[in-house]
Nucleic acid binder design. Structure first.
Length: 415
RNA sequence: GCGGGUGUAGCUCAGUGGUUAGAGCACCUCACUGUGGAUGAGGGGGCCGUGGGUUCAACUCCCAUCAUCCGCCCCA
């Protein structure tokens, strides 16, 4: 094999693209229903932007970024996530200068230099949204409600949204101390990797799949008990709002997120049977990020959904792939010109149609029609030409009828 | 970055240190000279991932490499 797609990347072929399109269109329809507008940012940004937003100690920044110098020695990085670019754009265009609430959605490739595995490519894709300019608890609820709408519309049943509050900076600081104290007697027995992790951010321990760690953490204090009065009451209110809207969720007090900019509400949707990379999406509040990156104080929240992961869980609908409405069949050589002409006319009317470019046997042409999922086949042969009619076959029922050519041409496409 | 599995036809996979490497599905042709999904018959398809080594002989054994899958890690 001469060339192949680089490690961790893949070609998306037409059948897959149909499903892909379905996911993106569904997302778009839902967010536009909430008044979100698309914000497209470049695929590359200054490296510094990601370092400052995701956090220098995060794994994403410390070892997974596609960073390079351009010909002018600028350090650039292929986006490893979607939020930073949106925030940068928000600040650059002074969108928040007059205050107010702003809603954006995006679809973007993301790049992480990581060992490929099921559900994890080096070039992945996300759709996501950012709701910026308010700390209203209803904004948390809106983002979660969109997330719920989205997966429901994709036909995914039994999804559960896991939710947690990691409070404010002070809460996390106090909590980490308590966590360390709880683990103290046992810290020395941990391996280097976990030691490092604890030093950098003890909260990340919750992500570990190590059974011993998990056991120890199961008796640890819950971060929810450390929340300030305000944080706790807004989290309670969020629960109430979601319950009222019938959105299923569960509280998972060990849910932490990998990027440093999150605070207060964080959430995730997890699938059960797609392997180790089981998060379908992740999101939460990031109230200080805009300010940290040099913009006006702009409390915000958002969510990002992995498209590849959604692909793994949506129901299979390869059965009803219909590429065409009509397939034209030339039964005899003399009908070929007519077929080409009719096809042209139907395309002008917006009908999805085609014909066999090689004009092989009728059987072959019928087979092609079947394969393309054509709803109807229009057959033209000597008989039809002579009587100035067309034969129309419904491919689903197998029924056949004839129409005068003029009638056929004046037909409007039904449905 | 670490551990393990797998690379054979377009796809899913059998296979053996020894002539010419198989099956199912798919594809093409025919039975059916104007009709798809069904059946039957025939046919085309392979540097057995790549490079090296062991051997009289390697698709098979060994090493390396690339890719992929499953974990760890991390996350979408």
């Amino acid at each position: 094999m001469a060339y192949q797609a680089p490690r961790g990347t893949y070609d998306r072929l037409p059948d897959e693209s149909k499903k892909w399109e379905f996911i993106v269109q569904t997302f778009k329809r839902i967010v536009e229903g909430y008044g979100y507008g698309e914000l497209v940012t470049p695929i590359i940004e200054d490296t510094e932007l990601f370092v400052r937003s995701s956090g220098e100690t995060s794994d994403v920044v410390s070892k997974e970024m596609y960073t390079f110098f351009d010909r002018s020695e600028r350090s650039l990085t292929l986006k490893p996530e979607g939020t930073a670019g949106v925030v940068r754009s928000f600040i650059q265009h002074k969108i928040g200068a007059q205050g107010g609430v702003h809603r954006f959605w995006y679809m973007t490739p993301i790049f992480r230099y990581d060992r490929p595995q099921k559900g994890r490519c080096r070039q992945g894709h996300q759709v996501g949204l950012e709701l910026m300019g308010t700390d209203s608890i209803y904004s948390d609820a809106e983002v979660i409600s969109i997330t719920s709408d989205f997966y429901k519309a994709l036909g995914i049943k039994d999804l559960t949204i896991q939710m947690n509050s990691i409070g404010c900076l002070q809460t996390r600081k106090t909590y980490c101390e308590a966590l360390l104290e709880h683990l103290q007697s046992y810290l020395i027995s941990l391996d280097d990797h976990l030691q490092q992790k604890i030093k950098k951010n003890p909260l990340r321990l919750f992500d570990s799949k190590d059974q011993v760690v998990q056991d120890k953490l199961s008796t640890a204090p819950s971060i929810l008990d450390f929340l300030s009065v305000e944080s706790l009451s807004r989290f309670k209110k969020l629960e109430k709002i979601l319950s009222k809207q019938g959105i299923p969720f569960c509280i998972n007090s060990s849910l932490v997120r990998g990027l440093d900019y999150y605070n207060e509400t964080v959430f995730e949707v997890v699938a059960n049977n797609i392997g180790a990379q089981s998060s379908l999406c992740g999101g939460g509040r990031y109230d200080s990020l805009v300010k940290e990156l040099g913009g006006p104080a702009t409390p915000s929240c958002g969510v990002a959904m992995g498209i590849e992961r959604a692909l793994m869980v949506i129901p299979d609908f390869s059965e009803h792939l219909d590429w065409l409405d009509v397939y034209f069949v030339a039964a005899t050589k003399s009908a070929e010109d007519t077929v080409v002409e009719l096809c042209r006319k139907h395309r002008d009317k917006g009908v999805k149609c085609n014909f066999d470019l090689d004009f092989k046997s009728i059987k072959h042409q019928m087979k092609q029609a079947d394969k393309m999922g054509a709803k109807e086949v229009v057959i033209i042969g000597d008989d039809e030409l002579e009587k100035n009619i067309v034969t129309i076959k419904n491919m689903k029922t197998g029924e056949q009828r004839t129409l005068l050519m003029d009638e056929f041409l004046s037909l409007e496409m039904k449905e």
